[in-house]
Simulated scan of single mutants.
Amino acid sequence: MDLDGICDRPLLEVCVDDAGGLAAARRGGADRIELCSALALDGLTPSTGLMQIASTLDRPVYAMIRPRGGDFVFSDADADIMLRDIDAARAAGLPGVVLGANRPSGELDAGVLTRLCRHAAGLGMTLHRSIDLVPDPIEAVDLAAELGFERILTSGGAETAENGADRIARMVARAGKRLSIMAGSGVTPANAPDILSRTGVRELHGSCSAPAEANAGFATLAPSASRETRSEIVAEMVAVLTRHASRSRVGDRTLSSASS
């Protein structure tokens, strides 16, 4: 589902890994949600139950398809699991999936990705940050377009999107109108305007999270550093994107008037 044509500001995708995160992202006004489990491991495939709950939301939710933590070099057995997880996302009624696979050398694994993309036919597809491990992510944009991805999530090969902004801008230029480049990693309300201005992206991705509040007296084995999606941070990010779009429109009108 492409929201760009019905939204006059950059889009916000929020990644969540539980029902509370789903509710918070929706309340805050996220345009799209990336649904995972175990965000502490950079996101794994969500449970069938969570996918079913997510399918009732009034905005698109894309399921991460990643069967294990660690690298993105997937065996035939891993790929078989991913095919079944794509089936589960489709059966749950979700409109899209998030995919990625690398060869040991770092390049995108065209063979595995072709198999996954063909199996996901009819669903929207995002290529995740496996592209940030590729020796030349700009050139890899071409393969992503050929495989039918509608967007690429990337930090430009850097630790954060802010640090990788120059390369992201080059990926935007390479993509043209074939697919969207979505900047992610370390995106906050404070740095979002700079990332947008430097890259030209029309989509941002973030967790919009904060340290989870401790439940005093609750028995838990969860690490103290766990985080949770906050609706107020989502709403702040949406407001920042709206203000950025308004300033851009004013700037465009000023330039148009000056040149006429």
Results as ranks from 00 to 15, higher is better:
Arg247Tyr: 14
Ser197Phe: 13
Asp194Gln: 11
Glu107Met: 08
Arg59Asp: 00
Ala88Lys: 09
Ser180Pro: 00
Asn102Trp: 03
Thr126Ile: 13
Asp109Pro: 07
His119Met: 03
Leu153Thr: 10
Asp78Tyr: 05
Glu107Ser: 11
Thr199Cys: 03
Met82Thr: 11
Cys208Asn: 02
Ala161Lys: 13
Ala91Arg: 15
Arg9His: 08
Leu44Arg: 08
Ser197Trp: 05
Pro60Arg: 14
Gly176Cys: 05
Thr114Arg: 14
Ala239Arg: 10
Arg151Asn: 03
Val98Pro: 00
Glu13Leu: 11
Ala175Met: 01
Leu50Asp: 00
Ile138His: 06
Gly206His: 10
Leu204Trp: 04
Asp142Met: 12
Pro223Tyr: 01
Val73Asp: 03
Leu196Val: 10
Met125Ser: 09
Pro223Phe: 02
Ala63Val: 10
Ala214Asp: 06
Val240Phe: 04
Ser180Glu: 07
Pro10Met: 11
Ser246Phe: 15
Ala222Ser: 08
Leu108Tyr: 07
Phe149Val: 09
Leu12Ala: 07
Ala235Gly: 02
Gly157Ala: 12
Gly96Asp: 01
Val187Asp: 05
Ala225Pro: 00
Gly206Met: 13
Gly206Ile: 02
Ala219Trp: 09
Gly43Trp: 09
Gly164Ile: 10
Ala110Arg: 15
Ile195Val: 11
Gly28Arg: 07
Asp2Met: 11
Arg32Thr: 07
Gly100Phe: 02
Phe72Lys: 07
Arg118Asp: 06
Gly5Tyr: 14
Thr199Pro: 04
Gly70His: 03
Met237Ile: 05
Leu50Arg: 07
Ala54Ser: 04
Phe72Cys: 07
Ala165Asp: 04
Ser260Lys: 12
Leu133Pro: 00
Gly21Lys: 05
Gly122Cys: 12
Ala120Val: 10
Ser180Trp: 08
Asp80Gly: 13
Ala145Thr: 12
Leu108Ser: 05
Pro189Met: 03
Asp4Lys: 15
Arg59Gly: 10
Val112Glu: 03
Asp71Met: 04
Glu34Trp: 02
Thr45His: 08
Phe74Ser: 09
Ser180Ala: 14
Gly20Gln: 06
Pro223Cys: 09
His119Ile: 01
Arg202Tyr: 02
Ser47Gln: 05
Ala30Ser: 02
Glu162Pro: 00
Leu196Cys: 06
Lys177His: 13
Leu39Pro: 13
Leu22Arg: 08
Arg230Gly: 08
Asn191Pro: 06
Ile33Val: 15
Pro10Thr: 10
Ser185Cys: 12
Ala121Phe: 11
Tyr62Glu: 00
Val97His: 02
His244Glu: 03
Asn102His: 08
Arg243Pro: 00
Thr48Phe: 10
Met82His: 07
Gly100Arg: 07
Val240Asn: 01
Ala169Asn: 07
Ser207Lys: 13
Gly100Met: 08
Asp8Pro: 15
Pro60Ser: 11
Thr229Lys: 04
Asp194Thr: 08
Cys36Pro: 01
Met82Val: 12
Ala225Gln: 12
